[in-house]
């Protein structure tokens, strides 16, 4: 239960933040959306992601698998964000 609570709230917030930041970068640098709209679009999507992830954390059968998935996707997103930030600066 503690593992799920940790996954559902603090880890979820970290992962959602990473995804939001990466999406904002992707929309702006990758797809050419203007930066303000890219940031806001990612921000709006973040609440959907957070709430669904919170439910998933309690819904899936294996807490171990859940954590492996979260750490894995966090690493991919983190690497993507880092690459994007080093390749081009912020406004």
């Amino acid at each position: 239960m503690a593992a799920r609570l940790l996954a559902a709230i603090p880890a979820n917030y970290l992962l959602t933040s990473l995804a939001t930041a990466t999406l904002a970068r992707l929309l702006w640098r990758g797809l050419g959306v203007d930066p303000a709209n890219a940031s806001v679009a990612a921000m709006l999507a973040s609440f959907v992601m957070f709430s669904v992830l919170a439910l998933v954390a309690f819904g899936v059968r294996s807490a171990l698998k859940l954590w492996l998935w979260m750490i894995g996707s966090g690493a991919v997103l983190g690497a993507g964000l880092w690459l994007s930030l080093t390749s081009g600066g912020r406004l």
Partner: peptide
Amino acid sequence: WGIAANYA
């Protein structure tokens, strides 16, 4: 973080 990613 969406704003922080694109704006310093």
